[in-house]
């Protein structure tokens, strides 16, 4: 019988980590940051069909870098989990924190149990009533979770990109300033001889979780509106940020009468109805008190 080589657990974990880290660093970066009107996602992505950033639920989105097949699996799992929770309870009961926990457990289990870890790093973002209430969770290949302070970068030369972000990021930035900062940060690495790169709109995947909307807040920004944001023509950009304008959120999401998201009802006109207590009390609360922040 052949002799089995002994490999210490430390060695095995180190090897797996190295494999995952190398795989993640090979790809291009993605940047997430809070701004005044929501949470912005910018990823370098040559494909317009294979997304790195996607919607999970009303106020939750998912971004990932690394191997597409692996994070696509996780994304589907997230949508399934969120929809199951939302159906069994209420739409307000789906939280980014629960999702981040599920991802962390899953990635952690895969890292220790399988011979090849997932070469992915993911971000779960939940938009809150104010930029301070936004939640950004970074979940790495080994299942560790970090709650990031309003901005994060992952994939590629993530540390350098984070450095560029940190210097200029403020929570009360406008969307335009946030997009330009994100693109500048992404372009700060990988240029010839350390020079900054210019990244064309066609190579970017940009999406936002819009703080002011009710119901499903996730929107992609593509085409002309994106070019306008990048070139900094604010008049055009503000007009295109909300191609399908809905009234801003006026208070805590109300319990849904059905499982559909609140934005399908049109502008919220049900307050002041005399039919009963279901909708009473909405509309007087200031935006920003909207969402209770889960304890950390």
């Amino acid at each position: 019988m052949a002799m089995q080589f002994y490999a210490s657990p430390e060695q095995i974990m180190r090897d797996r980590s190295e494999l995952a880290r190398k795989g993640i660093a090979r790809g291009r970066s993605a940047v997430m940051l809070s701004y005044e009107g929501g949470v912005l996602f910018v990823a370098e992505n040559l494909s317009s069909a294979l997304h790195k950033v996607s919607e999970i639920y009303d106020r939750i989105a998912f971004a990932a870098v690394g191997r597409y097949n692996e994070f696509e699996n996780l994304r589907r799992a997230g949508v399934r989990m969120a929809d199951t929770t939302g159906l069994s309870f209420d739409r307000r009961d789906v939280t980014g924190r629960a999702l981040a926990n599920a991802y962390a457990q899953t990635l952690g289990a895969i890292f220790t149990e399988q011979s090849k870890p997932f070469e992915v790093e993911i971000c779960v973002a939940e938009v809150g009533g104010t930029p301070e209430d936004d939640e950004l969770y970074r979940i790495t290949y080994d299942g560790s979770v970090n709650d990031e302070p309003g901005r994060m970068a992952m994939g590629g030369q993530a540390e350098a990109v984070t450095g560029a972000l940190k210097a200029d990021h403020q929570l009360d930035m406008s969307l335009e300033a946030a997009v330009r900062l994100a693109v500048r940060a992404l372009g700060s690495v990988g240029g010839e001889g350390g020079a900054p790169r210019t990244i064309a709109a066609s190579q970017l995947e940009v999406a936002i979780l819009d703080r002011r909307r009710v119901g499903r807040t996730f929107r992609r920004i593509t085409g002309a509106p994106l070019t306008a944001l990048l070139n900094g023509s604010p008049a055009e950009a503000t007009g295109t940020e909300t191609p399908d304008p809905k009234l801003p959120a006026t208070g805590p999401d109300k319990p849904t009468e059905s499982a559909a998201s609140a934005d399908l009802e049109g502008p919220d006109k049900s307050t002041g109805s005399t039919t009963g207590g279901k909708d009473a009390g909405n509309g007087n609360d200031k935006p920003g008190q909207g969402k209770a922040k889960p304890a950390k």
């Binding site: 699996n73 996780l74 589907r76 799992a77 399934r80 989990m81 929809d83 599920a102 457990q105 899953t106 952690g108 289990a109 895969i110 220790t112 149990e113």
Partner: peptide, 17 residues
């Protein structure tokens, strides 16, 4: 005990809820 999502969540599966 690992707390991971059950396989049925992670399978390619179907687009129908």
């Amino acid at each position: 005990p690992s707390g991971r999502l059950p396989d049925v969540f992670l399978n390619v599966g179907t687009s129908s809820f």
